[in-house]
């Protein structure tokens, strides 16, 4: 018996003129899936699409009351309200995109068992649905910020594009990973919920990175070098390796105010303080988060690819 197990299906076969090549067909299918998912999300609700705006607004209200009215963490941060709103919008996208995409495969068992197309389309379509909502929300934040004069637009705004790209790649990478594992292990869903809670507080959605590090320095007493411990170095590492925090931070700098410094500047400053203000040259600080995201995307896509062939049989 032949040990080979492959399927040869030439794509560019002859056909009648109206035939689509597979790439444009799959692009079309992805969009159709994303559009219908978007419609389905807001069907059977009175407020419909408004929910995607109301949800971040409500979360904003809760956090604002807790972190401003009860414990004032503003600490002189310029335009804290808009900075918080921006963080929440970014976070909502990340949370929704991963939650939706995680179920994209498992909830489409009928489709997977009855039709052939690259399975990744389902995950990409789900992420596009969230991305679409996110972009609208982001525009609204800018409009609100402009209306309240709480925005200082400069050339920095160019940085928004790579940052958004980074954010989407991160969400997509995690979605691939979760989506493929969720098919077989539903535990992933529960685990991810808890992890998201941790990430929410660990990503500086409601406070800026400089605020956290400032508190740390105050507690230690700046300049009293003996007070620094190895864990202060880890802090910097953690921040550098958590792309969500970096994205939130840098979006604030790029979009809202130059007073919120680049993540790189903050971390360099922190490291300098830890290392007794020695002159530091850390060239990996800037590309590091992007590298982390690239790694996550590659790992997610790889996991997905390895598992995709068994989806139809597992579901």
């Amino acid at each position: 018996m032949s040990a080979r197990a492959d399927t040869e299906v030439p794509a560019g076969a002859t056909g009648n003129g109206a035939q689509l090549n597979s790439f444009s067909h799959y692009r079309h299918l992805t969009l159709e899936l994303a559009i219908s998912q978007f419609k389905l999300r807001y069907t059977q609700s009175v407020l419909g699409y408004l929910w995607s705006l109301l949800k971040p607004a409500m979360i904003f209200g809760i956090i604002y009351v807790i972190f401003v009215v009860l414990f004032d963490v503003r600490d002189g941060t310029q335009y804290y309200g808009i900075q918080l709103l921006l963080g929440i919008v970014v976070w909502t996208f990340f949370a929704e995109c991963t939650a939706l995409s995680m179920q994209a495969i498992a909830s489409n068992g009928g489709l997977i068992r009855k039709a052939y197309f690259p399975r990744s389309i389902l995950v990409i379509a789900a992420s596009l649905t969230s991305l679409f909502t996110f972009l609208i929300n982001l525009c609204l934040v800018i409009v609100i910020a402009a209306a309240l004069h709480q925005i200082d637009i400069g050339l920095r705004i160019v940085a928004v594009i790579p940052l958004l790209l980074e954010l989407y790649m991160l969400a997509l990478g995690i979605s691939f990973f979760l989506g493929s594992l969720f098919v077989q292990y539903r535990d992933v869903g529960h685990l991810w919920e808890v992890l998201m809670q941790l990430l929410f507080y660990g990503s500086g959605v409601m406070f800026s990175l400089s605020y956290v590090l400032q508190r740390l320095h105050l507690a230690r007493g700046v300049g009293v070098t003996t007070n620094y411990r190895p864990r202060d170095l880890w802090m910097a590492w953690l921040v550098v390796c958590n792309p969500i925090m970096q994205i939130c931070e840098d979006l604030r700098h790029a979009l809202v105010t130059p007073q919120a410094p680049w993540t790189e500047t903050i971390v360099t400053g922190h490291l300098a303080a830890v290392h007794q203000y020695a002159a530091l040259d850390v060239p990996w600080l800037l590309p590091m988060p992007f590298l982390v995201v690239a790694l996550i995307l590659a790992a997610g896509a790889f996991t997905f690819r390895a598992r995709a062939r068994n989806f139809a049989e597992t579901l």
Binding site: A5, T7, G15
Partner: peptide, 28 residues
């Protein structure tokens, strides 16, 4: 139709295959 993968053997299909097996695939 490439929904399942073979464990052993060769499957060669020449031409554009309908990607669906049943009517109303994807209906919501």
């Amino acid at each position: 139709s490439r929904i399942y993968r073979p464990d052993a053997g060769v499957v060669a299909v020449e031409g554009k295959v309908s990607p669906f097996l049943e009517l109303g695939v994807g209906f919501n």
